[in-house]
């Protein structure tokens, strides 16, 4: 299942590495990364392939949110279909 991981927070070294490591630990394959820092704000969008397992998806979304909170980052893991639906005809 393809998903989008979005990360927003105050910029500092190691954010990309942190998220990428957490992905690797869960066997999540990163397909595409876009990242930018505007003034002090770090924004990153990752397109990833999740293992085909619904429970896993829920777990991953919850885990990333909690990990994000601990690091002062806002992390969302969302099914990519939502973006396709809203932004393409």
């Amino acid at each position: 299942m393809r998903a989008v991981i979005s990360v927003v927070g105050k910029d500092r070294p190691g954010i990309l590495a942190f998220v990428a490591t957490k992905c690797a630990e869960r066997n999540i394959n990163i397909v595409d990364v876009t990242q930018k820092v505007l003034q002090d704000l770090f924004t990153m969008i990752m397109i990833v392939d999740l293992p085909e397992d619904l429970e896993n998806m829920h777990q991953v979304a919850g885990d990333f949110e909690v990990m994000g909170d601990e690091q002062g980052l806002k992390i969302h893991v969302m099914h990519e279909d939502i973006f396709k639906a809203m932004h393409t005809i």
Partner: peptide
């Protein structure tokens, strides 16, 4: 940022 990134951020916002 690409167009699709903007779209993703728009939805999240």
């Amino acid at each position: 940022m690409t167009r699709s990134t903007d779209n993703i951020m728009e939805t999240i916002r």
